[in-house]
């Protein structure tokens, strides 16, 4: 294991996979300038600076993927993805199916998003759910350096088009990362960074540390919270979430993206359709608002779920600690 930032872990994943498979190439605006060691090792044919033109970068990647290459494209910021939407959504996501399974699109699209840099809504927009909604795509959004490396490697080896979201707020955070080039993190498997009995907190990306902080505070109050890091938004590890609900009976989902038609809504639907009998309280969502990200630090931070909000949401279920049972009248029941 080596300690490194998420950014370094991602670059290491690219190095290892490009060494392993000569069909892998990296393209993007400044892809070669920003990763000079990659450019040196693999040369200008495989590490390409492109014109500033997301639509054709993505389109080229889709065409190349259907023709024997395994492109990784770096489109910088998630809002820039809308220029690339046609190639990714209409072509990569649909043409395998519409051709009767005649082609594959093994390509990875990297994009950064999330608060922390005060860049405002045209650089910071957690729009991952839009891609979850589009058939044919896989969508990943890890929270640790180790998962960033392992999942990017898995994404490059995947036969499906993968959207890989990088949380800006986690880019420079360090973690222990495996040195074994053979290690990958399988797509579609959630992680459980903290086990608990009373309530399940499900999250991904920067709100995973928020949930872990909330869980630590809840422990002080005698409430035992389990934290699930989805890592992969599509495919979604429904087994992991359902198993946890079966044990805790309570589900709270936390993410920075807007709640409307988001991952939390999907998990709430999962809970009521597949675990209704296990639920001992309403499902609660703690999410960002239905508003573009503001640049002002004060507003940017106000939009991001904080640990205290998660603690309050858990306590609002009437949990007072110790035994996993509701003591007294839960707040939601009083409101009902």
């Amino acid at each position: 294991m080596t300690r490194m930032t998420t950014e370094q872990a991602l670059t290491q994943a690219l190095h290892e996979e490009m060494r392993r498979d000569e069909r892998v190439l990296l393209m993007g605006e400044g892809a070669a300038t920003k990763r000079p060691a990659l450019a040196r090792e693999f040369g200008p044919a495989r590490v390409r600076n492109t014109p500033l033109a997301e639509a054709i970068i993505a389109g080229t990647a889709v065409g190349a993927a259907a023709s024997g290459l395994r492109p990784v494209i770096d489109l910088l910021f998630a809002p820039c993805l809308t220029y690339a939407m046609d190639a990714l959504v209409n072509s990569a996501g649909k043409l395998r199916y519409l051709s009767g399974g005649l082609c594959e699109f093994p390509l990875v699209t990297l994009a950064m998003t999330g608060s922390g840099w005060c860049v405002g809504g045209q650089h910071n927009h957690n729009l991952e759910a839009m891609f979850v909604h589009a058939p044919g795509l896989h969508v990943l959004m890890p929270s640790t350096a180790a998962d960033s490396k392992g999942l990017l490697k898995a994404a490059i080896r995947d036969e499906n088009p993968v959207l890989f979201f990088i949380d800006l707020g986690l880019l420079h955070q360090e973690g222990e990362v495996s040195d074994d080039p053979g290690d990958i993190v399988p797509i579609g498997k959630a992680a459980v960074p903290r086990h608990g009995r009373d309530v399940t907190l499900v999250s991904y990306a920067k709100t995973v540390p928020v949930c872990l902080q909330a869980a630590a505070e809840l422990e002080q109050r005698g409430v035992s919270a389990e934290v699930i890091d989805l890592r992969s938004l599509k495919p979604l590890d429904t087994t992991c979430v359902l198993d946890s609900i079966a044990r805790t009976g309570r589900l709270i989902i936390v993410h920075e993206a807007s709640g409307l038609c988001g991952i939390a809504a999907e998990l709430a639907a999962l809970a009521v359709t597949r675990a209704f009998d296990a639920l001992r309280a309403p499902v609660v969502r703690v999410t960002g608002p239905d508003a573009p990200a503001a640049s002002s630090w004060a507003l940017e931070q106000a939009a991001v779920p904080q640990a205290q909000q998660v603690v309050d949401a858990v306590l609002g279920l009437g949990l007072t600690g110790g035994h996993g049972g509701a003591a007294g009248e839960p707040a939601w029941r009083a409101r009902a």
Binding site: V119, G120, Q122, H123, A294, S295, S296, W297, L299
Partner: peptide, 16 residues
């Protein structure tokens, strides 16, 4: 600086 007296009330910041 993201303050209310900015041209866009701090919502834009430098970029828009």
């Amino acid at each position: 600086l993201g303050r209310i007296d900015g041209y866009c009330g701090g919502r834009s910041g430098t970029l828009h």
